[in-house]
């Protein structure tokens, strides 16, 4: 691997790390709301969150480009705030990845919250814990397997994305050129050996991650009283 490959690996890890952290912050309240609400909005919001599962990445990338671009509503806002345009920057990649990986985090966390049910929170209330307190002291710890699964899947899925990155990030070394794009470049240039190093690494990484997720799920399922 040369310096460019290493830079791509580092950028990928950085992107996935930042995105996973932000995803947990965004997805946890969203999953909590989806798990507990009886609002008619639930299927609507649930569908919006799940859209990236079924849409081609190019569609998401295309619309993100429009929305974030200099003539899009968010693009105008970021320009006005002096932040510059998001497309073809690392920040733009983060925004795109957030949306693209959101369902992979929301769904396991939502399932975990739903599996807890209302009762432990009622118990907490009868012991003097208000809603906010019960969320931190009971719901979150009890949902830990779901949060861990969500974090791992969110990280792995961000590492593995290609289409959205290409549409909104382009191919700028050390800015937006992540591993999947670097592999594409190698293949285009018929540099199969270099491609193998990165592609094989991705295969090994994905395998390890999935083994970890399934192992975790089994361990926590066995723990249930």
């Amino acid at each position: 691997m040369d310096a460019q490959d290493l830079a791509a690996v580092w950028l990928t890890v950085k992107l996935a790390g930042v995105v996973t952290g932000l995803l947990l912050v965004v997805a946890t309240p969203l999953a909590w709301w989806l798990a507990r609400t009886e609002s008619w909005l639930k299927p609507v919001i649930g569908a919006v969150v799940a859209m990236p599962l079924v849409l081609p990445p190019t569609v998401i990338g295309f619309y993100l480009l429009l929305v974030l671009g200099p003539h899009g509503p968010i693009g105008r806002l970021t320009e006005a705030l002096g932040l510059g345009g998001l497309p073809f920057t690392f920040a733009g990649l983060v925004v795109g990845s957030l949306i693209y990986s959101l369902p992979f985090v929301v769904q396991p966390v939502q399932n975990a919250f739903e599996a807890i049910g209302r009762r432990p929170l009622e118990v907490a209330a009868t012991l003097g814990a208000g809603p906010w307190d019960a969320f931190w002291s009971v719901a979150l710890p009890m949902a830990r397997p779901g949060l861990l699964t969500g974090a791992i899947l969110g990280f792995a899925h961000t590492v593995g994305e290609f289409g959205v990155v290409l549409m909104i990030g382009g191919n700028i070394p050390e800015q937006t050129r992540v591993v999947s794009v670097q592999i594409y470049d190698h293949v285009e240039a018929l540099e199969y050996v270099q491609a193998h190093w990165l592609a094989g690494g991705m295969v090994a990484f994905s395998f390890v991650v999935l083994v970890a997720v399934y192992g975790l799920n089994r361990r926590f399922a066995g723990d249930r009283p």
Binding site: R119, E122, V123, A124, T126, V138, P141, M142, D223
Partner: peptide, 10 residues
Amino acid sequence: YVFQEAHLFP
């Protein structure tokens, strides 16, 4: 409040 099931925090 003691429920039918113990519901201890696991």
